[in-house]
Design a protein around this nucleic acid. Structure first.
Length: 438
RNA sequence: GGGGCUGUGGUCGAGCGGUUUAAGAUUCCUGACUGUCGAUCAGGAGGUCGCGGGUUCAAAUCCCGUCAGCCCCGCCA
C-alpha cells in the first residue's frame, strides 16, 4: 500500500475536500486524452468524479477503461469541471488491470446503448457495471427496503418460509420437481400456506421477501420462472377491503421513498412515481363494461381481463381520473385458488382482487377462508387430498382468525415504474424458459 | 402448449439473387490538440454474413433442416 496515511473518500464526497489532498479508489470509467492534459473519470459506488492528469496518461502505463485504480491528488474547484470540482492527479496505482476491452460499452448512457437484451444478459457481469443498468437495481432495492420498513412500522413480523416443499399451493401442475435424497419434492410457487399458518401462530401480521418458482411454459416480457415475491398476510380483518386499504398506504409509502431516495435514477429513466390520491376500484364486471362501451373491446363471458384489456383499461382510467393504478375486484370464485373467500351474498364471487399498474398486473390478493370445514370442502372440490395438507389444515382446525393478504411481484413493479420493455431487465440474473445462466 | 419474426466485425445495424473489394455508427489502436464532459480531427485494425445441406452460371440474399434469440397469446406476480 503506497498511501497508508490517507483514508479513502468516495466520488460523491470530493466536493467537501476542496484544497485538500485525497485518495480515491474505483474503476476507470473513461479516459479523455487531449494533448498534454488528460481527464480520467473515476467511478465508485457513489458515482463518478473527474480527475485531471496534467502530464497526460502516458505517465501511467497500463491505464485503461475498467482497470481498478487508486488515485491520489488535490481537490480543486474549477468551473470547467462537471459539478465544479475535480481532482488534480498526483499519482495513480493500478490495483487490478482490465486485460481486454469490455464486450459492451460500460460508460454509455442508457439511451445511447443500443445493445440487445440477449447480449446484455450474456455479458451480465460486465453490463451491470453500466451505471444506468445498475440503477435499476438500486431502485428495486429501495422498493424492497420501503416495503419492509412500512410493514415493520405497521407491526408486521418478517418471516422466512421454506422453498423446498412436499406439495404445491394449487395441486402441482406448475411446480418444479426436485430430487431430494430418496424422495421427490417441489420448489415453492408461493409462501401462501406458510404465511397463513404464521397468521394463526399468533404473529397475526407477517411478511416475506422471497423467491417463488413457476414451472409455466410462458415466454413473455412479463414472466419469469423464478421471481422475488413481496408477500404479506394479516389477521383480524373485516374483509378484503382491509387488505386493500393497507396496500394503498404501503404502495404510497414505497413510491414516496423511491421518489425521494432514487430521484437521480428515476430521472435517468425519465419516469415519475404515480402521485395517486386514491386508487380506484372496479369490479370485474364493471371493468369489462368499460372496455365494452368505452374501449370497443368485448370480453363477453371471459372470467378475467386479457393483457390488451388490462392495457386499455389502465389507459382509460388514467385519462379519466389521472390514476396510474386500479384495483379489479370480485373475480369469479372459479378462477381463484380453493382458499379464496367467497362473498356471503354471492358464493360465485370471490373476495379477491388484482392491482393493475400502467396496464400490467402487479398484485393479487384477497381474503382467505378461515373456517376449517369450509376449507376442507373447497379443497376436495379442487380435487386435492386433504391428507397432503395436514400441516396447513392444523392451523385452521384449532381456530384461525379472519385473514387475508397479497403478493407484489418485485420485478413487475420495478419494470412498470421504470417503464422497462422486458421483465428480464428488472432481474439481476433472470431465469426464463431457456436461460439458467448466468 | 399455440402463433409470428430475427440471426451480418466486440457492440448496434444497412444490404435481401449479380459493379458489394459486405454501407454506416460505435468500441478499440496510432497520431494531432492544455479544458474535455456523447470531445473533435486524421489514419488504422476488426466479418469464412449462426451452423449443415440444397437450388443457381452466380447465395449474406432463395429453399430445406438445425441451433440460438426476440415478440404475441394462454397462464400468472
Amino acid at each position: 500500500m503506497r498511501f497508508p496515511m490517507i483514508k479513502r473518500i468516495l466520488a460523491i464526497e470530493v466536493k467537501e475536500y476542496i484544497g485538500k489532498e485525497v485518495l480515491l479508489q474505483g474503476w476507470v470509467h473513461r479516459i479523455r486524452q487531449l494533448g498534454q492534459v488528460s481527464f480520467i473519470i473515476l467511478r465508485d459506488r457513489s458515482g463518478i468524479v473527474q480527475t485531471v492528469a496534467e502530464e497526460g496518461v502516458v505517465a501511467f502505463p497500463g491505464l485503461s477503461n475498467e482497470s481498478i485504480v487508486i488515485i491520489r491528488g488535490k481537490v480543486s474547484a474549477d468551473a470547467r469541471a462537471p459539478g465544479g470540482v475535480e481532482v488534480r492527479v498526483r499519482d495513480i496505482d493500478i490495483l487490478s488491470q482490465a486485460l481486454d476491452t469490455p464486450p459492451i460499452e460500460i460508460n454509455k448512457k442508457i439511451d445511447l446503448l443500443k445493445t440487445n437484451l440477449d447480449t446484455l444478459l450474456t455479458f451480465r457481469a460486465v453490463c451491470l457495471r453500466n451505471p444506468d443498468i445498475l440503477s435499476i437495481f438500486k431502485v428495486q432495492a429501495e422498493l424492497i427496503r420501503a416495503f419492509r420498513q412500512f410493514l415493520i412500522q405497521e407491526n408486521f413480523t418478517e418471516i422466512h418460509t421454506p422453498k423446498i416443499v412436499a406439495t404445491g399451493t394449487e395441486g402441482g401442475a406448475e411446480l418444479f420437481s426436485v430430487r431430494y435424497f430418496e424422495q421427490n419434492v417441489y420448489l415453492a410457487q408461493s409462501p401462501q400456506f406458510y404465511k397463513q399458518i404464521m397468521v394463526g401462530s399468533g404473529l397475526e401480521r407477517v411478511f416475506e421477501v422471497g423467491h417463488a418458482y413457476r414451472a409455466e411454459d410462458h415466454n413473455t416480457t412479463r414472466h419469469l420462472n423464478e421471481y422475488v415475491s413481496l408477500d404479506l398476510e394479516m389477521g383480524f380483518i373485516e374483509n378484503e377491503q382491509d387488505v386493500i386499504e393497507l396496500q394503498k398506504k404501503l404502495i404510497q409509502f414505497m413510491f414516496t421513498e423511491v421518489s425521494s431516495n432514487c430521484a437521480a435514477e428515476l430521472k435517468l429513466y425519465k419516469v415519475k412515481t404515480p402521485q395517486f390520491k386514491d386508487i380506484p376500484q372496479l369490479t370485474l364486471i364493471e371493468a369489462k363494461e368499460i372496455l365494452r362501451s368505452k374501449c370497443n373491446k368485448d370480453l363477453k363471458e371471459a372470467p378475467d381481463l386479457d393483457p390488451e384489456g388490462e392495457r386499455l383499461l389502465c389507459q382509460y382510467i388514467k385519462k379519466n381520473t389521472g390514476e396510474g393504478l386500479v384495483y379489479i375486484t370480485s373475480y369469479p370464485i372459479s378462477k381463484r385458488p380453493f382458499y379464496t373467500m367467497p362473498r356471503e351474498d354471492n358464493p360465485e364471487v370471490s373476495r379477491s382482487f388484482d392491482l393493475l399498474y400502467d396496464g400490467e398486473e402487479i398484485t393479487t390478493g384477497g381474503q382467505r377462508i378461515h373456517n376449517y370445514g369450509q376449507l376442507i370442502k373447497k379443497m376436495k372440490e379442487a380435487g386435492l387430498n386433504e391428507k397432503d395438507f395436514d400441516f396447513y389444515l392444523q392451523a385452521f382446525k384449532y381456530g384461525m382468525p379472519p385473514h387475508g393478504g397479497l403478493a407484489i411481484g418485485t420485478e413487475r413493479i420495478t419494470k412498470q415504474l421504470l417503464g422497462l420493455g422486458n421483465i428480464r431487465e428488472a432481474s439481476l440474473f433472470p431465469r426464463d424458459r431457456t436461460r439458467v445462466a448466468p
